[in-house]
Computed example of a mutant assay.
Amino acid sequence: MTRESIHEYFQIGTLQWMSYPGIASADAVKKIASDSYFDAVEISPIPETERDGVKNLLDQSHLSVSYGAHAAQLQAGWNPNSLVEKERRYAQEQLQRCIDEAAWLGAATMSFLAGRWEEGRQEEHLGQLVKTTAALCRYAKLRNMSVELEVFDYDVDKRVLIGPASLAAEFAAAVRADCRNFGLIVDLSHIPLTHESMEQVVYILKPYITHVHIGNAVLDPENPAYGDQHPRFGCPAGRNDVTEVAAFLQCLRAEGVADKKKRLPLSFEVKPRAQESADIILCNCKRTLNAAWRRLE
């Protein structure tokens, strides 16, 4: 298997807003689209003045395009599992607008994250999140799109409902009962933050995984990179590097997630720090993934 390219098993991509923070969306997309290493790109909401330019670049690129609403959602505080129905409905409407933009830009999927974790009221929030997600899936289906929810931490940084793998599986099963155009994004960088093992997470969530992210995390509260900061591979105190990425790829292979027929997106979710070069950090990601893939038996 390792004699074959990893591109035979996954569409390799990166998150535009994470790899190139602080620069114009069109410039970031152009850099990624000009790099033949990438089969896919994940874009965030695009400023209105740049949308035509970004769409033109994506149309030229032959990249598989995904759309992540995370940045806008976190900044505005949309809570798709709010127990206040007016707030839940508002979050749903805003995410539907993201689906509209994603469809116009040519994205096949729109992804988001759950709202805040509230101890002792998980089941109530779960019902609200299922309601929102099912509505988004029905809305996306009219545009031939899918909806994905990314699994984050519940008690470290983002502190959102989904969350623990067991709850993520319960949630995904409930949505899938009526909506086949739904899946989960599992991110290696979030697994240390949920106090779980990669083997446990992949095994529990494998029926619902439609997208994979890889990145790093720091669990030392005294470290400036602590939490969901997505530092580079090889950073001091980081929990994931070549060894862990290789183990994660092995898990994905063992559980049938790495599959030539599926070729799920596998994207870097790594963010350069202020003193780091975005181009070099992206090359760091590619070197790390290549080295990890070579280690597989």
Rank of each mutant, 00 (worst) to 15 (best):
M1D: 07
I6K: 02
E8Q: 11
E8D: 13
L15W: 06
G22D: 11
G22V: 14
A24Y: 09
A24M: 09
S25A: 15
A28R: 12
A28M: 04
V29L: 01
D35N: 15
D35H: 07
S36N: 15
Y37L: 07
F38T: 03
A40R: 10
E42D: 13
E42Y: 13
I46F: 08
R51Y: 09
K55Q: 10
K55E: 08
L57V: 03
S61Y: 04
A71Y: 10
Q73M: 15
L74T: 14
Q75E: 14
G77S: 06
P80E: 14
E85Y: 05
R88C: 01
R89V: 12
R89T: 13
A91N: 08
L95N: 10
C98W: 06
F112C: 00
G115N: 07
R116W: 10
R116K: 01
G120W: 05
G120E: 07
R121P: 00
E123S: 11
E124P: 01
Q128T: 01
K131A: 12
T133R: 03
C137N: 10
Y139I: 06
L142N: 11
S146A: 02
S146G: 05
E150Q: 05
F152A: 05
Y154H: 15
Y154K: 00
K158E: 15
V160Y: 13
L161P: 13
L167Q: 11
F171P: 04
F171M: 08
A172D: 12
V175Q: 04
R176S: 11
A177K: 13
C179K: 03
L184P: 03
D187E: 01
H190N: 10
I191P: 00
P192T: 08
E196I: 02
M198C: 11
V201W: 06
V202A: 01
L205A: 01
I209E: 08
T210N: 07
H211F: 08
G215I: 04
P221R: 01
N223V: 02
Q229M: 12
Q229Y: 07
Q229S: 06
L249F: 05
A254W: 09
E255N: 10
D259Y: 00
S267D: 10
S267G: 01
V270W: 14
V270Q: 02
K271W: 04
R273F: 12
D279F: 06
L282I: 10
N284E: 12
C285Y: 07
R287H: 15
T288C: 15
R295F: 11
